[in-house]
Design a protein around this nucleic acid. Sequence first.
DNA 1: TATTTTTGTAACAAAATTGTAAAAAAAACT
DNA 2: AGTTTTTTTTACAATTTTGTTACAAAAATA
Lengths: 241, 241
Amino acid sequence: MEQTNENKKTILIVDDEKPIVDILVYNLEKEGYKTLEANDGLTAVDIALSQKPDLILLDIMLPKMDGLTVCKKVRATLNVPILMLTAKDEEIDKILGLELGADDYITKPFSVRELMARIKANLRKTDARVATNEDSEKGNANKIEVGELQLNLDKFETKVSGEIIDLTIREFEVLKFLASQPGQVVTREVLLEKVWGYEYYGDIRTVDVTVRRIRGKIEKDTANPKILVTKRGVGYYIKNN
Amino acid sequence: MEQTNENKKTILIVDDEKPIVDILVYNLEKEGYKTLEANDGLTAVDIALSQKPDLILLDIMLPKMDGLTVCKKVRATLNVPILMLTAKDEEIDKILGLELGADDYITKPFSVRELMARIKANLRKTDARVATNEDSEKGNANKIEVGELQLNLDKFETKVSGEIIDLTIREFEVLKFLASQPGQVVTREVLLEKVWGYEYYGDIRTVDVTVRRIRGKIEKDTANPKILVTKRGVGYYIKNN
DNA sequence: TATTTTTGTAACAAAATTGTAAAAAAAACT
DNA sequence: AGTTTTTTTTACAATTTTGTTACAAAAATA
């Protein structure tokens, strides 16, 4: 709903019943998700591994390869949340085996509303994991210091010579990426991929503008930057002496 | 509240179906629990009494001694939360009727997500009990203090500059979670998972509204919060200077 | 020096985020 | 049961951030 085209979450729907798939596609796209479809197990694995969706809706009863195997195969290489669709009267053991490998399950018939809620919740869980794992939890010293520049990754706080600087997230992320490898010149392409995300297809000069904004906040003289420096013809880097 | 490697919670899994045990072990350890296994009722009682796990996952159908008896025996000497696994709905009456002291039950098939939620919820209950009994009995005032903010965890009482503020449970829990790690910016996703719970399916903006209500009670000027502050693009945190 | 390429910059437009109130729903309490 | 309190959802406005563009300035090249 609030997602731009670039970072829509992708959901892979695996079901051989066309009308069900259609309903799911309609509702998911209305909610702002991008959808992929697979009508049998083999195709499902293919698409999952090549497209790397953010979540998989997986029916148990499938042609060519059953849901259990799909689940296993996908899980072997991808850590994507899998939400199983099960009919109520399917064999208990079969379901049980499957359920335990999946993150969540929902029995048919289900309400669209409930399904959407489950999807949201499962996607959120991934987001939360990424946020905490990457940043704190692992006991990493959550600070980066380069010369007069200090970044506190827990507080998202930036200091220059002890003075707190108010950066936006985008600015902070760029600075964080550069400061994590001081001296290393980073191209705009790499910055776009690492900070903006690999599927981002905006203008590359966006990087320049963001750098300019950061400089406006951390440099005394933006025309003669001492911290975030340009390597002409290549990109930008943080001076580390 | 977060678990360090040394005091991981231990969970005893009692089930005679090897594949199920394996999957449970895998998922529980992924979530940071230590696991013990028992394949029959007799062994289960032995391990429970000697190892004193923090929680027991107990299947009803077991060789040598059935789950219900195991439950009784263990409960006779240990006050550990027991989560029963049942295959059929009819067995629920059995569990409830017999007053075995099982804390919770979950019917097969269940999802990993649901099981984890139940486990967490039951462990939380114990934590709460322990907190109130052990800490307050010893006279350790169970408090969090950050600047002008004081939380008394035993009394569920909040003070700002010495003045008692009346918060609801939800409000208190949010404030408590944030205040337990002042300065640390917490995303809405993490708050939802930690305060509302693993199984929560609601809207993420609920967090905003709760924060707003807390501010209405603890801040002089909600438009310029000095205690519970927004980190735009990330989440919320408690200012700790 | 003139030309081309690259980078800096400001201004505007678009998009995303947050604050807020109020209605609806759910839970707790009589 | 009905009533009150708490919580969630929803919608909208205000604000902030971000992206795009056009042009200027600087550096590199011929």
